[in-house]
């Protein structure tokens, strides 16, 4: 049984996280007010969901322990590719806070053009392709959302 758990560490960890989440939910729900007359109120559904979280978390752990784990998609194989994948995720995720901060100063069009260009270059798109696409997409999106749909996109020093 221990061997099985060692073979599926991800499953066991996912089970533990689920279990902990369930316990936290139940605990949190106890702090919510009751209905007049002592009937369950806002805390009822969080409690039910929390208990179910615990049940299915245990289920995951049991499945991992008995080796009844459904096979998953084969993921990236060699080591170099793995680091590349992690770098890609970091770049894409980091681009969001970068946008939020920069767009306050540079405005939507310039910030998005820069970010789209940066992402493309990072992902290995050739410069001759990345440059015109970034320069085209950002103003086009700005026109559709900002002008046609009247979304107040962040404005930069030149008013766009």
């Amino acid at each position: 049984m221990r061997n099985q758990l060692a073979r599926h560490p991800r499953e066991a960890v996912a089970g533990l996280i689920t279990l902990a989440l369930g316990a936290a939910l139940v605990q949190y729900a106890r702090g919510l007010p009751e209905m007049p007359g002592g009937y369950p109120g806002p805390g009822l559904f969080p409690t039910i969901v929390g208990v179910l979280f615990c049940v299915f978390g245990l289920g995951l752990i049991v499945q991992a322990a008995t080796g009844r784990v459904a096979p998953m998609d084969a993921e990236a194989v060699d080591h170099g590719e793995r680091w590349r994948s992690i770098a890609n995720v970091v770049v894409i995720v980091a681009a969001v806070p970068v946008y939020v901060v920069l767009s306050g100063y540079l405005g939507f069009v310039m910030t998005m053009a820069l970010i789209a260009f940066g992402i493309m270059v990072h992902l290995g798109v050739r410069l001759v392709l990345a440059l015109p696409i970034a320069a085209l997409v950002a103003p086009a999106v700005s026109y559709v959302f900002g002008t046609v749909l009247r979304v107040p996109l962040p404005r930069g020093p030149f008013g766009w």
Binding site: I92, A95, V96, Y99, F108, M112, I115, A116, I119, M120, L123, G124, V125, L129, A130, I133, A134, V137, A138, V141, F145, L149, V151, L153
Partner: peptide, 20 residues
């Protein structure tokens, strides 16, 4: 269609769409 170009365009739409 180069997939990486597409991904950066989808990125733009995700951010704008969520904000809009």
């Amino acid at each position: 269609i180069p997939r990486n170009v597409l991904m950066s365009i989808i990125f733009v739409f995700c951010v704008v769409g969520a904000y809009a």
